[in-house]
Nucleic acid binder design. Structure first.
Length: 628
DNA sequence: AAAAAAT
């Protein structure tokens, strides 16, 4: 089946080229700090291309294959005179396996930068002093022009600055941090005498990722970028024997790519030391700093032997950067630049988002209908790759079996499977052998799976940021994709933020969803309020983009005790009170009480029928909720 | 309440 068949008539309507050029709200009256958009790009170098004509073009391109853009491409033909290189699998996150990618879709994307003395962006790779070998590799990787994140981030990192960047995985961000790291490692190795033959490995750079599969993916890419530089890159993650990974490390390691648990293990066994770290990169940083991960990351970054901020370079990347995560992250950074790149292939026009009301008991049948429609809608050879997200591991297994029993070859991936099964599932999906992958959030972030045509949120996530990451698995590298969500009663808390997100990305919002959103007292998906509009985030050092006078962010963000002595607070003395407030980006001291409460944590109320929860209020509005 | 990440 072609992409063409997957889109409904209403979809076509939305993607008319006549739509006005979208400008993110906070760029409309822009003056503060540096803002670069393509308006800064000289007219001659700008492509004759309008981002908003892309979906239309792509949709009508059925005869020419899947959603490709117009005739131009930023890709060269592969350089075939280098056989060994070509043996390496090319899976950089800006590629889609084909040699043609809609890089034109990147050109029109605004980039916002804030911070002190921001190094200016470049327009070409030639302007950056990366050295001869790296330039060769850039050519081999068929990168002709840097993507927006690369144009901005690479000069910042080369200049020695710390960086917090909001950018989608499909935007070329892996290369954005790998090239300057490899370049820096090459220079540092000349200056430093690395002890040889030592039992303990001392990498110069550390790249951390939240899942094993993602660390593998980054490793594969980084190896390609470092080809023939002599820079040694090793990956370390759990679920697989540690002995082989030790052997890899013993051969020397300049750049270590790792998941947190296995890294801590190796450090505690004194096989790895972080004392030589000059570069630290956290991929999917918002996940790395969420409640479950933060202590481990803090341990690695602050309590082992890693040099402190200011003596190393730290880079944080994520598609979304909630305010409270930025606060945590600023502990790791020194005088950093904040970059926000407008989303590509995530919640932009390239992904058509649909929401349907489906109650839990009807979900299976509804899914089957969708899959049937997909199957008989012109598909002759292959079923399009469909990624189905569910809430639980058990739910994933059950749905896998149920789909298989009903004639749809499906395979599940979740953290309850052993690593071999996980990798098998991913391979089987990628190859098309099992064109339906049922996944938990293990697959929601960072993974680059080419040609995912359809993401189905069988169970919607609690958090709008997770939704953004999940649908970002389709519409990669400038191609278009479809995302369908099953919205049930349980998802009421998400109504408002989902409607907002869809509106921002020029999607048709069903009237019932707007109705739910209006009636909802929830300010932002239950856990955390999203700010930043079209961007994945907004530099929290500037405060809220829209005038919320009642916030404590801009003035106190780096204060270890940010609660003002005379603040009007009330926090219930429940164990989770602080957590809830923290999740909403609000700091509260549970000992501080006041009759004039700005923030109040109520216990065990059942506001939406989804079960009793705790709620945090500000002036009568729910600002956070969660289970006790 | 769930998921991920070490054994």
């Amino acid at each position: 089946m072609t992409r063409n068949d997957m889109f409904t008539e209403s979809t076509r309507k939305q993607t008319r080229p006549s739509r006005p050029r979208y400008l993110p709200p906070h760029l409309r009256h822009q003056n503060a700090n540096a803002v670069f958009t393509d308006a800064d790009t000289p007219e001659l170098t700008r492509p004759r291309y309008n981002r908003f004509s892309l979906p239309q073009t792509a949709l009508n391109s059925g005869g020419r294959g899947r959603g490709r853009g117009p005739s131009f491409t930023n890709r060269q033909k592969p350089n075939l005179d280098d056989e060994k290189f070509d043996e390496l699998e090319v899976i950089d996150d800006t590629a889609e396996g084909t040699n043609e990618t809609n890089f034109g879709a990147y050109e029109d994307i605004p980039v916002q930068a804030s911070g002190e003395n921001i190094p200016p962006p470049v327009q070409t790779f030639a302007e950056i002093d990366l050295g001869h070998v790296l330039k060769q590799n850039i050519k081999r990787c068929k990168f002709l022009k840097p993507t927006p994140i690369q144009r901005h981030a690479i000069p910042i990192v080369i200049a020695g600055r710390d960086l917090m960047a909001c950018a989608q995985t499909g935007s070329g961000k892996t290369a954005a941090f790998c090239f300057p790291i490899i370049c820096g490692v090459l220079k540092d190795r000349l200056l430093l005498s690395i002890p040889g033959g030592s039992q303990v490995a001392c990498p110069l750079a550390l790249i951390l990722a939240p899942t094993r599969e993602l660390s593998c993916q980054i490793h594969e890419e980084a190896k390609k970028f470092a080809y023939r530089t002599g820079v040694k890159i090793v990956v370390a993650y759990g679920g697989t024997p540690i002995s082989q990974q030790f052997r890899n490390i013993e051969k020397g390691v300049d750049i270590l790519v790792a998941t947190p648990g296995r890294l801590v293990d190796m450090i505690e066994r004194a096989r790895v030391s972080l004392r030589m770290i000059k570069y630290l990169a956290l991929d999917e940083a918002d996940r790395m700093l969420d409640m479950g991960f933060e202590p481990q990351i803090r341990k690695i970054v602050e309590k082992m032997d890693m040099p402190p901020p200011g003596t190393r370079q730290t880079m944080l990347f994520s598609a979304t950067f909630p305010d409270e995560i930025q606060k945590l992250a600023s502990d790791f950074l020194s005088d950093y630049v904040f970059l926000a790149v407008g989303r590509v292939g995530s919640s932009t026009d390239l992904i058509v988002q649909r929401v349907e009301i489906v109650q839990d008991m009807d979900k299976r049948n509804h899914l089957l209908n969708l899959l049937h429609a997909q199957k008989y809608n012109g598909s002759r050879s292959k079923h399009p790759l469909t990624l189905v997200f569910v809430e639980t591991k058990r739910g994933a297994d059950e749905l896998e079996h149920w789909l298989s029993r009903n004639g749809f070859p499906a395979i599940a991936i979740h953290g309850g499977k052993v690593q071999m099964e996980r990798e098998l599932a991913l391979r089987s999906f990628k190859s098309g052998a099992t064109p339906i992958l049922v996944a938990t959030d293990v697959a929601s972030r960072g993974l680059d799976i080419p040609h995912v045509a359809h993401v189905i949120n069988f169970d919607l996530p609690k958090n709008i940021d997770d939704y953004v990451h999940r649908i970002g698995r389709t519409g990669r590298a400038g191609n278009c994709g479809l995302a369908t969500a099953f919205f049930s009663d349980k998802n009421l808390p998400l109504a408002k933020s989902l409607a907002e997100l869809m509106r921002e990305s020029n999607q048709e919002v069903p009237s019932w969803l707007n109705q739910y959103a209006e009636n909802s007292s929830f300010s932002g998906g239950g856990w955390a309020k999203r700010v930043g509009g079209k961007f994945g985030g907004y530099d929290f050092r500037k405060g809220f983009p829209s005038g919320n006078e009642n916030n404590y962010h801009s003035s106190t963000y780096n204060d270890t005790h940010p609660v003002p002595a005379t603040g009007d607070y009330y926090a219930a003395a429940s164990a989770n009170a602080q957590t809830f407030l923290g999740s909403a980006g609000i700091y509260a001291d549970p000992c501080t009480t006041s009759a004039n409460a700005d923030y109040l944590v109520g216990r065990n109320e059942n506001l939406d029928g989804a079960g009793p929860r705790e709620y945090a209020y500000s002036h009568g509005q729910v600002v956070a909720s969660g289970w006790e």
